[in-house]
Amino acid sequence: MEQPVISLRGATASLGSRPVLRGVDLAVQRGEVVALLGANGSGKSTAVRAVVGQVPLTGGELELFGTPQRRFRDWARVGYVPQRTTAASGVPATVREVVAAGRLARTKLGPTRKADREAVVRALELVGMADRLKDSVNALSGGQHQRVLIARALAGEPELLIMDEPMAGVDLANQAVLAEALRTQVARGATVLLVLHELGPLEPLIDRAVVLRDGCVVHDGAPPQAVGQHALPGHDHVHPHADPAAEPIRTGLLS
């Protein structure tokens, strides 16, 4: 059998003294689209942040493309969309400038060539934002911010897309655009692991859902059916949140 793209076995991790992952097994095969579901604090965000090396595992094994994550260096194969509600920072930046940062996965410290600039434009076309290239990200709506963040991950032309709540705070029209962009990636053979609060318009794309509760896998298989209020069409289930323990303490002066 082919080597899984992501392989997490018996993974444990803590934030501070609180155990957040308590033995998670997760394997994602090439070309699969896997949704990681669960309530707030279930550990789904920590799980993907551990996969991309942003949370250290206290136990268990993690392999990316068959290489132990500790020794994995081929980050250009991975496109990451962190949990953010904004693509802006303390200084104005255009959509093109933000998305071009994603290309650094390939150029690293080297110069930017024509092919790199074209990849940035292509990534923006994929999310339907090519006409906003020169606009300041400060002028964008919440859904457009997410589209820019996804374009940034796509600019490196990754084989594996890892997205942490890409639909948080995104209206239905923008969700549909994102679903379409994702469908294009999947059709090209990309592998996708994404954290979601609910399946929403992405449901038809999802091959498998893994549900976490209190840091343990409680379901791994077909996407669960939405029930009650959540099943109503157009139900906009959005809880923007940040895990306070995941963030370093900000001093205000230097943060």
Partner: peptide
Amino acid sequence: FAICQDEEFARVTGLP
């Protein structure tokens, strides 16, 4: 620009 804009993302691109 990348590290000051989004440090976590920059780390995942493999930049030092």
